[in-house]
Design a protein around this nucleic acid. Structure first.
Lengths: 228, 228
DNA sequence: CCAATAGTGTCTCTAAGACAGTATGTT
DNA sequence: AACATACTGTCTTAGAGACACTATTGG
């Protein structure tokens, strides 16, 4: 190799915070480590980046291998954690990602490096291995701020949803109650939801909507920008 | 080392986009490479992360060594670039940062790995080595969006500044003309500027202001959030 | 007809944005 | 006196936020 750097190198890992939503609650997917260090502790799905691979590809691969998440999902780079003390006994730098998935679309299952894979409500998540707790906090912050100016909430909902569900999602992410009428007014005026049907709820049936991605992209090109 | 990962590892680098402001123009600090690869090409200041060092510390160290920037400066992690093809002949992953500095406070000077260090207007910057052009674009995007909701513009101005300068800065970053009266009204109403004096301009003297950091932090704690 | 959830309209107030002339200094 | 730059105020309009009742269905 020409120009190669001869000094010690870190191992490069990726870790992903996978967010889901169900029962009016935001949750995260964690795996139980089958290997040292932190064997038996809950941790983020992740692993090492292989030669020739981009970190994002590594993150997607690991989500498939470790969490049973193979489909196309929303995945975004979050932050790179490089404290030399973050991994006991080795120098491991981790590029962290966060993912938004529709929980119902996935059968989470542990892969070879994991004893178990489970969703946890983020309100009562277990203590995590390494600095993964901090990574989750960072991801939550990012989600909370991003949800205001990008229509990423829909990545967490089923294709079709009611206004009640959409509002519960926003309330769960933002951690505050919102006014039903103002919330509806807001999204109605954005014009990015398409009515697609009606669904029984036990009492009065509710109208269901879809996020109109194409229309949103058109509007975006015309200078529109989403804000909630 | 316990648990160490035996497979090939990337070299870990940091690169920094250093922004400055002068003459109604945003500029960036680039260095001319003294070594292969891309010897003689302009590039971002940066270098390899050493064992025991955090990436941020490495970035600060390199800015001192390569660009003559030793003082405390605003520095924020931007994005990690990990395309395996980004560096010819080796696997080098780079954690990119961006910095905001008061141009007048620094005597930029090239370090040992650089033939030269120079400020360039970002409108007419040279073609850069590696993927550094993309890194600059990413940093500019980040700066442009962040300037709306965080008072980081002040990091680019001298301690004391006039409304004309402040407005020129925002116009340069955002790339659009702003209305003088509305601009003033906005910042006046925020209440984060402190009048500190008067400066001759050749014609009618202008009032100078300082960013009142303490007041801003107080207000922030009370739930205030900056927005322009 | 009762219970439960879905859905709706108005008012107030703040702030964004468009817009043009006066004030104060220098030469 | 002329010129250049600093500085100022009003109107219109859009939207955020507070607020409470009606509609529709199942049991």
């Amino acid at each position: 190799m020409k120009y190669s750097y001869p000094y010690p190198r870190p191992a490069l890992a990726v870790d992903a915070v996978v967010f889901g939503f169900a029962d009016e609650d935001v949750c995260g997917l964690f795996i139980e480590r089958a290997l040292e260090p932190f064997k038996g502790r809950w941790a983020l799905p992740g692993g090492f980046v292989r030669p020739g691979e981009t970190p994002e590809a590594a993150a997607r691969r690991e989500l498939g291998e470790e969490g049973g998440i193979q489909q196309e999902i929303y995945l975004e780079q979050l932050y790179t954690f490089g404290d030399p003390e973050r991994h006991p006994g080795d120098w491991v730098v981790s590029v962290a990602y966060y993912a938004l998935v529709r929980k119902d679309r996935f059968n989470v299952k542990p892969g070879s490096d994991a004893k178990d894979a489970q969703w946890f409500s983020l309100k009562k998540r277990p203590a995590l291995a390494f600095d993964h707790g901090r990574i989750v906090d960072t991801a939550l912050q990012r989600l909370r701020s991003k949800v205001h100016y990008q229509p990423i909430g829909f990545e967490l909902l089923p294709e079709q949803f009611t206004y009640a569900e959409l509002q519960q999602l926003y309330e769960a992410i933002l951690g505050e109650a919102l006014d039903k009428r103002n919330f509806r007014k807001k999204f109605d005026s954005l014009g990015i939801l398409r009515e697609v049907g009606v669904v029984p709820t036990g009492k009065r049936p509710a109208t269901t909507y879809e996020f109109d991605r194409k229309k949103y992209q058109q509007m975006q090109r015309r200078g529109f920008h989403f804000e909630v």
